[in-house]
Amino acid sequence: MKSQPIKNSLGIFPKSWSEEHAGRIPGNIPIWVGILSELTEFGIFFAAYFIAKFYYPDTFAQGPQSLHTSLGVTNTIVLLSSSYFMAKAMSFIRVNNKIKCERYLWLALSCGVLYLIIKTWEFHWNTLQGFSANTNEFFTVYYYMTFNHFIHVGWASCAILWVIFRLRRGAYSSTEHSGLEALAVYWHMIDLMWILIFPLLYVLR
């Protein structure tokens, strides 16, 4: 009984933040500390984008026209699909269908790997066009944001592999799957960041 409040609030949050008062926390508290930290990090990137755009409006108006828009659109669809596959994997572990859960995790991982391949190709294509982080302020922000996001997709893809390994070892079931759910919410957070990055760098002139 005594450990219950600590489990639900880590003992550092107000009582109103506990699961009893505010509702269930998907995954676990540590992953949400991580997610909120990542959101802060990306928030700083977005703030840097808007400040740079304020000082260099012409550079930021021309920048997106230099990028390979089709690759950006494809990667957006790939990441959205990966989020869908992850949500499906969660729905199947809840009914204890581990085979289908694993199948959807592999699909989500495939999307993550495909994203990394497309992004690598895009970086290569930029280099062939003569663009680098030093080209102008737009490309500095572009590489700053996209390479950081690339790293996040990379390590989260490795985490999917780990979760598949744990699933096969019988670590998750319909009653206990908080580790899998923690990865799922983290993966969705990465997708959410791309939802913001895509229009800023590829669409808005």
Binding site: E19, A22, G23, R24, A87
Partner: peptide, 8 residues
Amino acid sequence: FMELKGAN
């Protein structure tokens, strides 16, 4: 997808 509707 994140299933926060109805969660915390």
